[in-house]
Design a protein around this nucleic acid. Sequence first.
DNA 1: CCGGTTTCGTAACAGCGTCGCGTTTACGGT
DNA 2: ACCGTAAACGCGACGCTGTTACGAAACCGG
Lengths: 199, 199
Amino acid sequence: MPRPRTHDEALRLRLLDRAGELLSTEGAKALGLRRLAADAGTSTTAVYSLFGGKTELVNALYVEGFRRLGARLRAVERTGDVVADLVRLGLAYRASALASRNLYPVMFTRAVPGFEPNEAAARLARSTVDPLLETVRDGVDRGVLADVPPGVIAASCWAFAHGLVSLELDGNLPPEFGTAGMYERALRANASGWLRAGA
Amino acid sequence: MPRPRTHDEALRLRLLDRAGELLSTEGAKALGLRRLAADAGTSTTAVYSLFGGKTELVNALYVEGFRRLGARLRAVERTGDVVADLVRLGLAYRASALASRNLYPVMFTRAVPGFEPNEAAARLARSTVDPLLETVRDGVDRGVLADVPPGVIAASCWAFAHGLVSLELDGNLPPEFGTAGMYERALRANASGWLRAGA
DNA sequence: CCGGTTTCGTAACAGCGTCGCGTTTACGGT
DNA sequence: ACCGTAAACGCGACGCTGTTACGAAACCGG
């Protein structure tokens, strides 16, 4: 007896796509529910019936961003050389950030005012670096990396890549980084600093 | 003939103080002009006559944050040991961020929606890392650090400290970092990775 | 063909940043 | 002593935001 529903999965994806597009092209200020709904050919009610509100919509973008990042990190194949693997992971991190510049600000720079990721999303975000953690743990077990809690080394590598990308997206990275593989050089320097002394 | 002005320097400072306080205690969402003006005993007009608008007020907070950071970095005394100096600068960076958590989100995580630092503020932000750049340049000149453009090494060290602090403030740093000087250990690892091979 | 039921769009509400307008205030000239 | 003038400030309106209550719309069974 109901009227045919139009707030379906297809509309949900259209809203998410358009929201990411608005974020990337015009910034967080342009992500308004009225405009978003109009662009998707619906009304603001759709956001509430499909997500629950603007916060949850942004949370969905957040989750999507970390899923893509996680997929890229898991796709990095191991070479057996720990430093080389860490460099590859760092490059994959940067590639993911540049590929979806639209989602990166939501994931890491609290681009939307009132938004805080919920518990499940935060756990997903932390577990995204698991491939990195495994690589580090393997290196520590084999005595290649320093005898330090693997979580510390993994967090350091993550922080480094995150900081570099963050500076790059804000245009605060010197132009030399664009050329001559300075990115790779920096990642190698950071990783090799954790090599066990005398190796 | 005018009426006595109350939109003076003292009110300007009061507004800045209260704005930083609101940011730190209740987040960017709580920084509204009406409430800010009421707390400072004035009206929203004061923000426009003293700053020009909310964006410029946030820009003033941004500038203030980088001035404090710059002061802390310039206060770090050199030891002659490049790695030790870089570690000290990294620790000073963290100390500054923790000392004024209220300003850090404005400086680095675009906490306020429409805000983008103006050109002068952006130049001030970049020049804040000058002490770091000088230390690196000295190390490269003396042949202690790798023969890489100093801007690259300096940006890398900055990115690392920035990434670590960013993760820490978001609660994504493993608990080991709080203890046992793991922070210093990580900074040392990152810096020593740039030592000239065979040194 | 009409009643019931589910679903969606509209419009109202409180809040925001912004700015024009009217009031307030003190001084200088009469 | 008083009033006109000119500057400075606060009030309130405007258009916008996220959110939600409510009425209209659309289908199916009787």
